[in-house]
Design a binder for these strands. Structure first.
Length: 419
RNA sequence: GAGCCUGUAGCUCAGUUGGUUAGAGCGUCAGAUUGUGGCUCUGAAGGUCGUGGGUUCGACCCCCAUCAGGCUCCCCA
């Protein structure tokens, strides 16, 4: 044991081989869904300019005000990206992706960073997969994004999910609503929780999001934003709902659903699971028609979602969904003596070239130990060679499952492997 | 950032009111089987008892701090 025990930083974990196999499965499933929806992958840097995140997500949000991993180097300010949408929007502008024509239907999978206090389902480095449709104001895009998200969970077999849907309106609708909300809450101001009181002036909509017990009965009768939507927002919302109905995607309307990022307009949604515990959001998203303009691009309507990989894994664990079968190797070459080791090192390539997986002992263990290793690795066949066999031009070909073994040429063994 | 709970081998856990060399199962490695896995038997390795202080003749056990994890908030993925 080393004297210095290094470990991962607070809230950051290693993904060990058994876990990594599950990740590979989930990632490939997500890629399959992306392929069938014909969304193209985009990979953006993990470090972005701090100002991009602050401007995109909103300086007053929790993420920007207290959860960023940021540092400076010379003149430049770096931040580990806390979410994926602002970077994708930045890339869209930087590379003039609208020039590719049509809407840009993009997806991503990757690590995100937020300096929150870790707990189950919440880490400082976590992973999201998400998708964006950039360049469409049509409710079709909202429906497509939600359908994409739901398809991932459907293919995995996740149950007990609730899709919450709301519209947070546009600036005009929101201004009217904000006034109505403040008028409603003002008489109760002293009874509200401290947090909610602080939100009263700047962002009264967030009061609706409160889980503080003293706020619940007060907010229960608060005006609903859906009653304050202007005609454009209202029509949009109705069309999103009817598209979802047509797709057979069930949802519940949650007039108090307010998301924590400033850039949302119109559609907002969140997918929650009762199998998650305290951190119950599997994913969420919405429309952000003003973000790209805010970041300096041409006004471009867009909609997207983001989902947590770790939370998806927790849900699968809770539901007993098997994500990864035990990995096994096709062929294990067991050797005795240096001549045989050298022969194996050279000829294992031939097996691999046929498309089968093959491995051998790399540490000079006894044959018994090699056999045990072959068993542990789930080898279907063992090819056992020593100097005697090599002199006769033969190998021992063993079928592990039934322990049958025959002495044949390596060429014949190769033929048998592929039957 | 706040409150509560937990922290003993790689893993899951024992450890008697504080009392000598801290245990088990699983796993790992080796032997029984001088060239052959899964079962069985035998043996070995593996622990600064999360870390650092303090109390005490003596601390895995009591106290404080700290780190890490869990739960509830906050908030989100």
């Amino acid at each position: 044991m080393a004297q210095n025990n290094f470990s991962t930083h607070h809230g950051m974990v290693d993904i060990l081989p058994e876990e990594a196999a599950k990740w590979q499965y989930l990632e490939s499933l997500i890629r399959d869904v992306a392929r069938s929806f014909h969304f193209e992958e985009i990979r953006t840097p993990i470090l972005e300019q701090t100002e991009l995140i602050a401007r995109g997500i909103g300086a007053l949000t929790d993420i920007v005000s207290k959860e960023m991993f940021a540092f400076s180097r010379g003149e430049d300010n770096y931040v580990l990206r806390p979410e994926g949408t602002a970077p994708v929007a930045r890339a869209y502008i930087q590379h003039s992706l609208q020039q590719r024509g049509g809407t840009q239907n993009l997806f991503y999978i990757g690590p995100m960073f937020r300096a929150e206090r870790p707990q189950k389902g919440r880490q400082r480095q976590f992973h999201q997969f998400g998708a964006e449709v950039l360049g469409s104001a049509d409710p079709l895009a909202d429906a497509e994004i939600i359908a994409f998200m739901m398809e991932v969970y459907k293919r995995i077999g996740v149950k007990n999910m609730v899709l919450k849907l709301n519209s947070v309106g546009d600036p005009e609708s929101r201004a009217a609503y904000k006034t109505a909300l403040q008028d409603y809450f003002r008489p109760f101001l002293s009874q509200l929780s401290e947090i909610s009181q602080a939100r009263f002036d700047k962002n009264p909509m967030r009061i609706l999001d409160s889980k503080e017990p003293e706020d619940q009965h007060i907010k229960a009768n608060a005006p609903k934003i859906t009653d304050y939507l202007n005609e454009d927002c209202s029509n949009h919302f109705e069309k999103v709902k009817s598209h979802l109905d047509r797709l057979g995607i069930t949802y519940i309307l949650d007039p108090f659903l307010v998301r924590g990022l400033d850039y949302y307009t119109k559609t907002a949604f969140e997918l929650t699971s009762s199998d998650l515990g305290g951190q119950d959001a599997l994913g969420g998203g919405g429309r952000y028609d003003l973000l790209i303009e805010e970041l300096g691009g041409k006004a471009t309507p867009a909609v997207g979602f983001a989902s947590g990989m770790e939370r998806l894994l927790i849900v699968c664990e809770e539901l007993g969904i098997e994500l990864a079968k035990p990995k096994s190797v096709d062929v294990y070459i067991v050797t005795r003596g240096e001549v045989a080791q050298a022969w194996a090192m050279e000829n294992i390539r031939t097996i691999r070239e046929t498309g089968l997986s093959a491995t051998m002992d790399l540490s000079g263990k006894s044959m018994k130990a090699q056999m045990k290793d072959a068993d542990r690795k789930g080898a279907r066949f063992a090819i056992i060679v020593g100097e005697d066999e090599l002199q006769q031009g033969l190998v021992n070909f063993r079928v592990m499952a039934d322990s049958t073994e025959e002495s044949i040429s390596f060429t014949d063994a190769l033929a048998k492997l592929n039957t």
